[in-house]
Design a protein around this nucleic acid. Sequence first.
DNA 1: CCTTGCTGCTAACACGCGTTACCAACGCGC
DNA 2: GCGCGTTGGTAACGCGTGTTAGCAGCAAGG
Lengths: 347, 347
Amino acid sequence: MRLLKSAARYICMSRPVIGERPMTRSSRRITSEDVARAAGVSRTTVSFVLNDRPGQSIPMETRQRVLEAARNLGYRPHASARTLAAGRSDLVLLAIPDTRLGPATSRFVEELAAALAEHGLTLITHLAGAPLPDVCATVNASAVVGLSPFDAETADALRRAGAEVVLPLPDPRGGVDEAMEQVGRLQAGHLIDRGHRRLGYAMPVHRGLRAMADARLAGVTAACATGGIDPPVVAELGLAVADASRAVTRWRAAEVTAVCAYNDETAIAVLAGAHDQGLAVPADLAVIGVDDIPTAKLVTPALSTIRFDVHEAGRRRAEAVVAALAGQEPVSSPDIGGPSVVPRDST
Amino acid sequence: MRLLKSAARYICMSRPVIGERPMTRSSRRITSEDVARAAGVSRTTVSFVLNDRPGQSIPMETRQRVLEAARNLGYRPHASARTLAAGRSDLVLLAIPDTRLGPATSRFVEELAAALAEHGLTLITHLAGAPLPDVCATVNASAVVGLSPFDAETADALRRAGAEVVLPLPDPRGGVDEAMEQVGRLQAGHLIDRGHRRLGYAMPVHRGLRAMADARLAGVTAACATGGIDPPVVAELGLAVADASRAVTRWRAAEVTAVCAYNDETAIAVLAGAHDQGLAVPADLAVIGVDDIPTAKLVTPALSTIRFDVHEAGRRRAEAVVAALAGQEPVSSPDIGGPSVVPRDST
DNA sequence: CCTTGCTGCTAACACGCGTTACCAACGCGC
DNA sequence: GCGCGTTGGTAACGCGTGTTAGCAGCAAGG
């Protein structure tokens, strides 16, 4: 029987199929049948033991025999077969937007992956290339997680592609991301506390960042309203000295004394612009960024910024995913956790 | 028959299985059988048409009918089933090491993903969390790609986990990465060209970067030998002003006039250290980094650096993967393509 | 007439696993 | 003896697909 099978495979192999390679080493995969044979039980029993199926009465002695056989043989269940049979995969897909991802993101990913792993889930990240729903379908992800809320259309496409859980869900209130707004509020609040009465906002030109930038700007605007001052003077700039210099000129003309930047890179561009215009930071113009990238404390003057508690954030997001997979459907989008101001020399 | 099947599923659904959610919307997946029924042919024919199987004579009319049915129904083949049946997946796993990934990496990923997609392969990236071989087994990746060569042990584990292709392979010559060495040579060559006769090397403390840093340092050392000067004075530093300041003191004591930094972030730290010591760059100390991160041109003075041609590199790497999957086993590790010097104000 | 070959298609198996229905053995109460 | 529950397991089906062997139908050649 087994002989027949491998004969068939051999014939198959000998045909010049495109992309087919002769199986030189590790000729055959170790399946649960091998484990069963080695332990002297049936495949079903192996499955029961390895999956710790509750409600089954399997004596400790048999259990040990199976586990040992599996370990000795180096058995690893075939994920696709498992997915196919169970109708669900252990994969969580993290969609990272078309933006330059910084160290904050990277740490968030690590936390998320670790927290999901504790629940037997595997995190896969997707940066670019194939459209998200396609990738989702290809890997049979049971959950898709984004860094900021998906729009309704994308969320729907992902659902159709087989994802059971999509987080964060589009915000039904109108798409403003609460956590990002909070970041903007912290930036502006810090500057207002230091006595600034006229703020600027440094907006990135990159289109992919627009949604997040708008949310942060909304927070800045809100804080200005709360503090009783005018909304910020918005200027767009790319990561170039010339751009930044132009923006600084505009702000000076509007009597702006402090600038909230979309992120630390943009903030560093503003620093360069101020330097180009011969302005002193923070005396002539204060600047605050977001992210606390490693270079933030290395530039001159050291950059004030907003830091996220990514540890907490990753863990919370993971819990939300697990809860949603367990059936608690309407989990609200968990916020990026505890942003806080890191005051340095630029404000 | 079909009725029976869905009845059975209903019963299954009604049990309170852990993590099982009632199928509210999109009750059933669209399978190739649905397409077959809609087109009035057998499932086999559908498979032949959709996979464009050569050597089958299927009239254009039938072909069109099948394609149209598939399109109308929004059919998407179930990846796990496909993988299970074919014994091979369309997934390529990109392992990104435990290092802060910069924009250069991000662009490389985009290129790689696009190039692989042209061959019907899907790129998945893995940043951290579960051990790489486990992830590889979980997604049934048919190829695993790293940013720098794997060590022999890891490569072996990946093979055992089911990966058919692992790139770049461990270098049999002794583990020095040719491309990384080339980067170091360019850095040192540039400085020697400018007349410097005594170089320093800024080594990151982060352990995960050590292998790559050693390779780059080897390149610098080689260039020094070629130029007939002493090997570089190596100093370790973290991304903090105090660290960098100490390193700069050491270099000054050794009469170093120019420093090659592991990457741009480290280089910016060196700039901060020089500033802290009241030194002028490049007059007292020249500095060159690697990566050309966006902030490199924004700091004062603008940082000289090495830029990769990531477009070319991603494409070449993708071709190597495709070739290896097609059976050409001994593909040598393709180099990161065309690094070049970007001279700015810091040298 | 029979053979041969081609066209267009299908039945049936295999992939590796989770799951259900069922079974043998045993002990216990009647 | 019979019924019944528990323990410790197994045979068999289904998941959705790729692949192969094979089968009608038809035409051409002998």
